[in-house]
C-alpha cells in the first residue's frame, strides 16, 4: 500500500502584515484579521518563483526520505504560478535534485489541489510497481489583485512529498483516498491574465464547503472511520476561517485541526496549502496516529485522504528542519512598497 517516504517544505523569509495592506486601502485591519482569521502572509523574494520554491522543498524531501534521487521515477509539480507557460517546472526540479533522466515528469494545474492530485497519481504508479518512488509537489507564488480581498491571503510556499510502496520506509501509510469533482466557476484566471478573478461569496457554499465536506464524508463512509478516529485533520485553507467552519460542519474539533492550520501565519500558499498543513502535522504526529487531509481546488474539486503514521517517523524526523522552524526562523517584515517591488508591481 502506498505511503509517504519523506517530505520537505519551503516558505520564503519575507512577510507582510494585514495592517500594512489595510493601511494602503484604508480598510480596518482588525475586521479583516477577524474576518479572514489571518495575521500576516509570506511574500516571495524578487528571485523566488514556484520553481525555486519547489526545488527547495524537493531537496529537503530527498534528505528527509533518505532515498537516492535517481530512484525517483516520476515528478509532478502542481502550481497555478508555473514560471513558464510551456517548459515544465518538473524538469527544473528533476535537474536540481539530480534525479537523472530515467523518469517521467509533468506539471499539473488544478488551482489549489494539484499537489494532492499528483499524490493520487503516484499512489497508483507505486502500487502497480511502475515506479519505486515518485515525488509530488505543490508550489505557488500566488497572485492577488491589488485592493482585492485575496491580496490579504495570496502568499508563497510549497511542499514536496515522496511516495513509495515499502511500508518499512514509509513515515505514513495512505490508507485510502477519494475525490469529488464538479464544474464550478468559483475562481479562475484566463491565459495571459496577471490576476485571478473570483465569484465573491460564491466561493464559499457551492465551491469550498460543498466539495470539502462531500469528499470528506465520502472518505469517512468508504473507510468506516469516524472523525474521532483521527488525531489530526487538515483542510484546505484559503483563509483561516473556512477550514475551521468546515471542521465544525464535519464534526472535527478545533484541537484536531490546530497543528495543520498554517494560513493565519503564512497566508494561502495555494497548491502548497494542504500539503504544508500535512507536513506540519507529520512533524508532531506519533506512530499509530491517523490523519485526515482534504484539499480543495477551485474549478472545482477536493481530494480526501486517510493516513496512518508509522514507526519510522521518529527516526526520519531528525534528518531535516521542522515546518514551524522554517516558517519562524529569519522572518523579514516588509512594507507595501517592498511587497510591490518583490512582486514586480513596480519596476525601475
Amino acid at each position: 500500500m502506498a505511503g509517504i517516504i519523506g517530505y520537505g517544505v519551503h516558505v520564503p523569509h519575507y512577510r507582510i502584515k494585514v495592517e500594512e495592506i489595510a493601511r494602503i486601502w484604508n480598510e480596518d485591519p482588525e475586521s479583516i484579521k477577524k474576518g479572514l482569521h489571518i495575521k500576516e502572509k509570506s511574500v516571495p523574494s524578487h528571485d523566488e518563483d514556484a520553481a525555486t520554491i519547489a526545488v527547495e522543498a524537493a531537496r529537503r524531501a530527498v534528505k528527509h526520505a533518505g532515498v537516492k534521487a535517481t530512484d525517483i521515477g516520476a515528478i509532478y509539480v502542481g502550481s497555478e504560478s508555473h514560471p513558464y507557460a510551456v517548459k515544465p517546472t518538473a524538469t527544473i526540479v528533476s535537474q536540481a535534485i539530480s534525479a537523472g533522466h530515467n523518469l517521467t515528469a509533468a506539471d499539473l494545474e488544478f488551482a489549489c489541489k494539484a499537489g494532492t492530485a499528483g499524490m493520487q497519481m503516484l499512489m497508483g504508479m507505486s502500487d502497480s510497481g511502475m515506479i519505486k518512488y515518485g515525488m509530488t509537489i505543490g508550489s505557488d507564488t500566488s497572485q492577488g489583485r491589488p485592493g482585492d480581498a485575496l491580496e490579504y491571503t495570496a502568499s508563497a510556499g510549497g511542499a514536496a512529498f515522496i511516495i513509495g510502496k515499502e511500508k518499512s520506509e514509509s513515515v505514513a501509510t495512505i490508507l485510502d483516498t477519494v475525490s469529488f469533482t464538479s464544474d464550478t466557476p468559483d475562481f479562475w484566471r484566463r491565459e495571459g491574465a496577471d490576476f485571478p478573478s473570483h465569484g465573491g461569496r460564491f466561493t464559499g457554499e457551492p465551491a469550498y464547503f460543498r466539495h470539502v465536506t462531500t469528499a470528506t464524508k465520502m472518505l469517512l463512509e468508504k473507510t468506516g472511520f469516524k472523525p474521532s478516529d483521527f488525531k489530526y485533520a487538515v483542510f484546505h485553507q484559503p483563509n483561516g476561517k473556512f477550514p475551521i467552519a468546515a471542521a465544525k460542519l464535519l464534526g472535527f474539533s478545533q484541537e484536531q485541526i490546530d497543528d495543520g492550520l498554517l494560513t493565519p501565519i503564512i497566508g494561502n500558499t495555494y497548491s502548497g496549502a494542504s500539503l504544508l498543513g500535512l507536513a506540519a502535522v507529520l512533524d508532531k504526529a506519533s506512530p499509530g496516529d491517523k490523519v485526515l487531509v482534504t484539499s480543495f481546488g477551485s474549478g472545482a474539486g477536493s481530494d480526501s485522504f486517510a493516513i496512518e503514521v508509522n514507526d519510522i517517523i521518529n527516526e526520519k524526523r531528525t534528518r531535516s528542519e521542522k515546518v514551524l522552524d522554517i516558517i519562524n526562523n529569519g522572518k523579514l517584515y516588509i512594507d507595501y512598497a517592498m511587497y510591490l517591488k518583490n512582486r514586480k508591481g513596480i519596476r525601475k
Binding site: 523574494s45 528571485d47 523566488e48 518563483d49 525555486t52 526545488v55 527547495e56 531537496r59 536540481a96
Partner: peptide, 8 residues
Amino acid sequence: VRQVFRKM
C-alpha cells in the same frame, strides 16, 4: 552560509 536555488 548554505547553498539555495534562486533565479539569477
